[in-house]
Write a protein that binds this DNA or RNA. Structure first.
Length: 110
DNA sequence: GTTTTGACAGTAT
DNA sequence: AATACTGCCAAAA
């Protein structure tokens, strides 16, 4: 499996499976990947994979609904821009998880 | 081979 | 309710 473990591939697959206009949280992805407490691993993989692959890391935010970076960071502006471009409205660095949080059931119609 | 870091979450106080 | 600490996984140095 190359250098990537199943967890890595699963996380990457889940992230790549996030529909446009939706966002996922680290905990959610980690949980779906089989590591309910592996949120950090998810974030790390995200960063690592982003450098080698085009990954919608912007759709991955904290469980609190906030972006992963402070509003001062350049990456924050970029992410916010990308999210708004996806149709997601980012207010005060926060996204309405009640609206934009990706539900696994959305792609799995019963 | 070991240690440190890295874009968090959950639980406890 | 808010804050702090701990726990977790993986990759790079």
């Amino acid at each position: 499996m190359d250098t990537q473990t199943e967890f890595s591939k699963k996380v990457l697959a889940l992230i790549k499976a996030i529909p446009k206009g939706k966002v996922a949280t680290y905990g959610l992805i980690a949980k779906l990947a089989g590591k309910p407490r592996g949120a950090r691993g998810v974030g790390w993989l995200l960063h690592s994979c982003t450098k080698s692959h085009k990954l919608p890391w912007q759709r991955v935010i904290k469980s609190n609904g906030q972006l992963s970076f402070p509003a001062f960071s350049h990456a924050y502006s970029l992410q916010k821009n990308l999210l708004e471009r996806e149709g997601i409205l980012v207010l005060n660095g926060r996204v309405d998880l009640k609206i934009y949080l990706w539900n696994k059931e959305v792609r799995d119609p019963i």
